[in-house]
Nucleic acid binder design. Sequence first.
DNA 1: TTGTAGGCGTTATCAG
DNA 2: CTGATAACGCCTACAA
Lengths: 330, 330
Amino acid sequence: MATVSRVLNESGPVGVETRRRILEVATALRYTPDSAARSLTTRRTGTIGVLLPDLYGEFFSEVIRGIDATAQRGGYHLLVSSSHDDKGALEAAMRAMRGRVDGLVVMSPDIDAPALVANLADTTPVVLLNCDVEGTAFDALNIDNFGGASAMVRHLISLGHERIAFIAGSERNHDAAERLRGYRAVLQRAGLERRAEWERTGDFTEAGGYRAAAELLVEAVRPTAIFAANDSMAIGALSALRESGVRVPEDVVVVGFDDIPIARYMSPPLTTVHVAINELGERATRMLLQAVEEKNVQVKVQETLPTTLVIRQSCGGCGSPVSAESRCFR
Amino acid sequence: MATVSRVLNESGPVGVETRRRILEVATALRYTPDSAARSLTTRRTGTIGVLLPDLYGEFFSEVIRGIDATAQRGGYHLLVSSSHDDKGALEAAMRAMRGRVDGLVVMSPDIDAPALVANLADTTPVVLLNCDVEGTAFDALNIDNFGGASAMVRHLISLGHERIAFIAGSERNHDAAERLRGYRAVLQRAGLERRAEWERTGDFTEAGGYRAAAELLVEAVRPTAIFAANDSMAIGALSALRESGVRVPEDVVVVGFDDIPIARYMSPPLTTVHVAINELGERATRMLLQAVEEKNVQVKVQETLPTTLVIRQSCGGCGSPVSAESRCFR
DNA sequence: TTGTAGGCGTTATCAG
DNA sequence: CTGATAACGCCTACAA
């Protein structure tokens, strides 16, 4: 009956008595509108989709936390799908989500998601998270990877380090590439030596960082500082150094990127580039919801999430000339 | 057209030429069946719901990973919802999922989920994960919390410890309660002293473990071993001890529970009770899919996931009389 | 092997 | 203010 619909959705005028009766019966019968039927007519699902490359580690779980919180606040459900190694898998996942969601948050640092989205010619709003995107054709949110990495290297230099190694993320990863770019740029600018052996490639996991650090230790010329492109690898590096009896920060300094929650609990507490991971998910979701709910606005926005240096003990201290944006934490 | 449906679902006979033509047009038009309309007729959504208390930390993200992998393999999507502090929130979330999912994995160690599920009188299959459930009325999967905690305390005793402290999880948490029960049972059995001051209550977070350990350090009689009810708290404890200049494992021994991926990378590597977290999600999902796909089978199963001791360095070594189920890892 | 008709549970439209 | 009636897009049955 149409009136029932009007009562439950508070759309249209309904008599007080009628309304009461309907509500009574509805609760008595534990009646809940069928969401499939509803979205068949409304063309809205009340759900947003989240596409992630993986779910391993604290970084992703914090991002989802932010997304979930924001979506929930906006009254949306979350359809999550992860582990899209290649383009085909991501494309399949996107297609599978079509019709099931009102919008999509796509985090895909490894894959050319923009091309994929353009290719799909879909009308569902999409926000690209940590993607390598040029121009203004998409809603996109990125971390200030270059700025963060630059600031960290500058800090290391200010502490007197001249032999700075870098453990990069996987080569195709956009965040990884930007962080590497920041590292190289500052080294070059400072006129410091850049050795190929001091640039190892990891995979953003603890195991990768462990391996890379172990390799760095046996180099003929050992670096005095190791900058890992994310905290997980820094933690792996810490572990490798410890096993080899190398003291941190006395013998070698280790720093990371992301500031995942455990970073401050490491031994020693990890100096890192702080990213407001929660906020990353939050803002992406807010951007998406805006696009979902105001379909008329066709203007896309590109945003960058700023980063800050968090100085803890794994780098040996604040140094004398602390750069403007760095702060000292316990 | 019915034939189109037959082609896309491979149900019913279709002429070869017709089939080819339909497929051709379908791909040309990028046609994808509307999932809402489809589930309206089929009464199936191809989605399973996951209800979690929170998304913080590696434990949850590993569980979801396991669930996601298994669901994906079975061709199902994942509708995730978290942060259900109280009964009302959980109930609302369950109701909201009704009709959107074919089945539900409910992880709710804090809340009386069984009562809720029974109360909802819903026909959607549900698997209860880490819930305090009695009897055989529900499909349920639990960790062997009691066994794991017992084994760990026995191990500590075998290492010669007599003053063993415990950092518990929150009081209403079922897993936490079982682990505490295991700790107490073994202490009692061994005739060891049990002091109220050596039982601190944490909240399964690093911060909670940090606080609890700091409090233990100022006790008149200081324990020689600290058993945290999960790894996050153990990591927090490690951090607190380190800050106070207490060496682990020389001065005080620290052990955890869960064996989250980072545990092995701690300094020192964390001795802990291994839980196959991935498998936890995997098995729960398999149980659910079974219930979803074979509706006839009305027999519910209750399973327990076994645990094993993982001896690393934070407990000071393997000890002499290694109990049967313990293994030594790097 | 193919096309037609009905219905899934809502909401939107339109008379009353 | 309320109740019919027609979509929404698909699948299942039935008839051709």
